[in-house]
Amino acid sequence: MTVLRLAGLVKRFGANPVLRGIDLTVERGERIAILGASGSGKSTLLRCINFMELPDEGRVEFGGQVVGSERDGRRRYAERELTQIRRQVGMVFQHFNLFPHMTALGNVMEGPLTVLGQDRVQAEARGRAELARVGLADKADAYPAHLSGGQKQRVAIARALAMDPALLLFDEPTSALDPALVGEVLGTIRALAEDGRTMLLVTHELGFAYHVASRVLFLADGLIHEQGTPAEVLKEPRQAATRAFIASHKQFSL
């Protein structure tokens, strides 16, 4: 079953094209790692998928439905429709973006409570279950300020999961973490992958992409430059740009 299909996606910031025509089909259960140098459009691609940024050209098909409607040769998006899409797409950010005025449990309950309109008892049960899933059942009452970076990111993952998303987007989820805390977050994401969740993951952790992703995309200059299985892209890249990128990431590895 196809979860997401992008066709000819273009996004510009002013005159500067960030995405120059992305075609991508995501099947249910796929785990797609997106690699690329900074400025290659990785984050923008994710943000176009849940419409945090509106694409300038091209189509996004979500769950078989084309998003937006064509008028005067331009695609228009109604805010209500985009809000509906975002409810079904979970996003985890580099800087967590937890709500500092709510406890860990409050953060995780917030979606079910406010967005899905669940009652408090139901939302709390769900919140506790998701916190337990990411190994933070005992931190339910802690405020984000009292959590480590890794714990914050796991709460953020639980917050996304509480919405039962059909697709999970991870935008460099470990880039803001101390090296010592990266492992616990990657472990949590890996467990989700093993559950068969559909996910797109922008990351610089090549080893993680190699072991967890079912497909790897290499983005350069706003285009998918190369894609394939992790072994194909990471071990035997065909494109010079991909080879250079991977070499630069391995420069100081042991």
């Binding site: 849940n50 409810r87 079904q88 996003m91 967005v115 953020a156």
Partner: peptide
């Protein structure tokens, strides 16, 4: 971002 990504 955090709030909108939840669908608020």
């Amino acid at each position: 971002d955090g709030a909108r990504a939840l669908g608020m």
